[in-house]
Amino acid sequence: MGSHHEQVKLTSAELSYLWSTYMADSMSVCVFTYFLKNVEDRQIEKLMAHSIDLSKQHLEKIRQIFAKEEIQVPIGFIEKDVNTKAKRLFTDTFYIKYMKQMTNGGITTYGRVLQHIYRQDIRGFFSKCLTSTVQLYNEITEVLIDKGLDSRPPTIPYPQKNEFVQKQSFLLEGLGRREALTGEEVSQLQFNIETNQIGTSLATAFSQVTGTKKVRDYMLRGKEIALKHISVFGDYLKNNSLPVPMSFDHEVTDSTESPFSDKLMMFHFGLMMYAGIGNYGAAISASRKSDLVVDFTRLSGEILKYAEDGVNILIANEWLEQPPLAISREELAKD
């Protein structure tokens, strides 16, 4: 049964997701190899080693699939994209918070990918990616709680009786805005503040170490955008007397020696931008508060424009590998 499925050509979705997974995992191996060189905490070191191991397994499996299908393996990110001898750029606290965000993104991505996979062997691969990432996420969360580093979402009152919404203004408040947030809205606000905080820390670090003015300016602009978004989301929490997660920009050292190529840093930032757009989309679907929906929609557009400018920098420097494309019938007609 399995071999019959494996004779079927990969669908466009299967090919594209394998290709983009290869790119992301090759980047992760570079990033974590550098982190591993200067991590001090043994628990965090163990989680990092586990993370590298998973990424290497994914790369090997995709290489095998591509060899069998006679597909060109992407270059991705290789040894020349990382300098493991570079001075320490981040603290151990940043490392574990970064790992939590990355595994979080992995769970979301693999869950979405699986809905578009038909071939049995590819389904098996992405299912394994999902379960192993969930396991790693749980291990990371345990260590964060154990060290008192996890910012748990705030509590809201437990419902004491069954109630029904009395007015449509719960959804469409018009000028009389509903001040109280639902539990899901609180959770989305906190989550998106934390992802933007990872973004500001990376922007701070990358702008310090890049030797390219365009990349530096791009990172600093990204930091400005992320800080603005944190402020918008933080105001909603403050207005409900709820705590705002603490920034961790101080977890970046003063090193100016780059551990990563500009190509890797720009690609990494791009991945985060598109993940951010997805996160804002999820927040919009979870919100019933019109001003919140308007803000998430408006800020999504801002990220999209910023991400597009980043793609232009990647293209201008020939840093952007072309993903698998469908046949252009128009181009064929010209020949």
Rank of each mutant, 00 (worst) to 15 (best):
M48D: 03
F77L: 03
L114I: 02
I327Q: 11
K85D: 11
T109L: 14
L181N: 05
L15G: 07
F66P: 00
T33V: 01
S187P: 00
Y280T: 00
A226C: 11
I122A: 09
K213T: 15
F269E: 00
Q57N: 10
I44R: 06
E184P: 00
P153R: 08
K87P: 01
H58C: 03
N239C: 04
A24H: 03
Y306T: 01
R221W: 05
D291T: 13
Q166H: 14
S247T: 15
P259H: 14
I75S: 08
T103N: 13
S187Q: 02
Q197I: 14
F125P: 09
G222F: 11
H50V: 03
K87E: 10
R123K: 15
Y137C: 03
K238H: 12
L172K: 10
L242Y: 09
K289Y: 07
T182E: 05
M273K: 07
F35R: 05
P259S: 11
D25L: 07
A226F: 10
S258H: 09
F191H: 11
D146V: 08
I78Q: 14
R288L: 13
M265C: 04
L136Y: 09
S201D: 06
N192L: 03
K289G: 06
T33F: 02
L242M: 13
P245G: 07
K56V: 01
L271Y: 04
N312A: 07
K214C: 01
N192M: 03
N196F: 08
G183P: 00
S247E: 10
R88T: 12
L15S: 07
T108F: 04
A86H: 05
A286T: 01
V215D: 08
S127W: 05
V244T: 08
Q72R: 13
H250C: 11
A226K: 08
Q188D: 06
E6F: 08
V252S: 06
I71L: 12
M272A: 03
S231W: 03
S20F: 14
F164D: 10
S285E: 01
R288T: 12
T11C: 06
M23W: 11
T182R: 09
W319T: 00
E14T: 11
